[in-house]
Design a protein around this nucleic acid. Structure first.
Length: 376
RNA sequence: GGGGAAGUCGCAUAGCGGCAAUUGCAACAGACUGUAAAUCUGUCCUCUUCGGAGUUCGGUGGUUCGAGUCCACCCUUCCCCA
């Protein structure tokens, strides 16, 4: 994997770049739609590539391991053969499930045991196993196994958890460096910075991670409920230390506002369930603000869903019709909203990139934020 | 004409002497950040300074400290037999 900076802002840490992977080039900053089980919920790969213009999507190690199971993915010839998305992919390690499945998992010295949320069966994830699985899934970018700490998180726990994450990281790289890709194209392993909201832990975490000279670095454990300003502060601390020559990935973030603020602080890659999940729950993101499509006020509004949107759904369908679909619980509503939101997110980062190149990112961002944070 | 059943907050339901009254749907609003989420939460008779206050269970009377619940009559539906 290769990363090149095309253009860097003079008045902030934003940069426009290109990541070259075996499955294609990713222009950064980028938003990566989340496709947990190998599918971006409600959105076909044709829409993803042609309409939304997604460049890379996510998969999840834990979910794919449970279902369909790694054997099936291996038999298919890797995840991109399996899901017919023959563009770059990234798999998360299951570290987020250590957090989100907190009630049905247990962290051990060796790794983490989970009780399957599907059938209750017990499974153990170790750093080695997570690397082996991600080798077999075959994403271009794979993630280190970490613990995403909750918020609030006491200092002592955050420190202890970071210690475990760092130990796991060493084991991940050990395994990664001693194994080969299964499908003939290279994979990159990204470490994940942890340390909750504590400056010294984050600094320590970054310094330990850069020793591995990874192809890219992720910042995890944010947007889990901490005040937004704390998140921005921690991002700043991390991007001051992480090498500028490598892509930085802010995991699980976020709102359009979070993304623009993240870009300003030197983040290149984002992923978040928000555009798809909130879309399925009738919330639309637009350049003029957010709207709840279930609200009665759209009942007889026959204007386009989003006249400024880039997706075909934006001008093809009206607000009144989309509201009708949501109220009627029609599946098409979920598809339209997901496609629209993802197209907006990709449009957002595409425009951000252009303004970084044009050299007016911060002023553009300030203007944009005034509008997109409104509630319509 | 004879016999039977039933009327509860938009609809459907629960209720069997202590009830502003169950549940579901509908309606209306809100939440959602590396997806256990096409999910979840709240409101849903009226007014409210959110402490409460005022009117309710087809109608009118009655029994009772107290009635959606018991009694009488009336009104209205539905079913069965002619």
């Amino acid at each position: 994997m290769d990363y090149q900076i095309i253009s860097a802002s003079k008045d902030c840490k934003a940069r426009a770049g290109e990541i070259k992977t075996a499955h294609g080039i990713i222009k950064t900053p980028i938003f990566m739609p989340v496709g947990t089980v190998g599918s971006v919920k409600g959105v076909g790969v044709n829409y993803l590539s042609d309409d939304i213009k997604a460049q890379i999507i996510l998969g999840n190690t834990y979910h794919l391991y449970l279902r369909p199971g790694i054997k099936i993915i291996e038999k298919a010839g890797g995840i991109q053969k399996f899901n017919s998305w023959n563009k770059p992919m990234l798999t998360d390690s299951g570290g987020f499930q250590v957090y989100s499945l907190g009630k049905i998992r247990k962290i051990t010295e060796n790794g983490c045991t989970f009780q399957s949320h599907i059938d209750g069966s017990r499974h153990e994830f170790t750093p080695e196993k997570v690397i082996d699985i991600q080798r077999k899934i075959g994403a271009d970018i794979i993630m280190a196994f970490d613990e995403c700490t909750p918020y609030p998180c006491g200092y002592d726990y955050a420190k202890k958890s970071l210690h475990i994450t760092l130990q796991w990281l060493a084991r991940c790289f050990e395994r990664f460096n001693n194994t080969q890709p299964v499908y003939g194209y290279p994979q990159s392993l990204f470490p994940i910075v942890q340390g909750s909201v504590y400056e010294d832990l984050r600094i320590h975490s970054c310094r330990e991670m850069i020793k591995y000279n990874a192809d890219g670095y992720a910042i995890g454990g944010l947007s889990v409920g901490e005040p937004t300003q704390d998140m921005y502060h921690i991002i700043n601390i991390c991007t001051d230390i992480l090498p500028t020559t490598k892509p930085r990935y802010l995991m699980g973030v976020g709102t359009p506002e979070n993304i623009l603020e993240g870009i300003e602080r030197g983040i290149d890659m984002f992923d978040c369930v928000m555009p798809t999940r909130n879309g399925r729950n009738a919330m639309l993101f637009t350049w003029n603000g957010t709207l709840n499509m279930r609200n009665k006020k759209w009942e007889d509004d026959f204007s386009p869903i989003d006249p400024t949107g880039t997706s075909f759904v934006d001008t093809l369908y009206t607000k009144a019709y989309l509201r009708h679909l949501f109220v009627s619980k029609e599946l098409l509503a979920l598809e339209i909203a997901s496609v629209h939101n993802l197209a907006f997110y990709l449009d957002l980062v595409t425009k951000a990139r252009q303004h970084i190149i044009d050299g007016d990112y911060t002023s553009w961002k300030t203007d944009v934020l005034r509008n997109i944070t409104r509630k319509l």
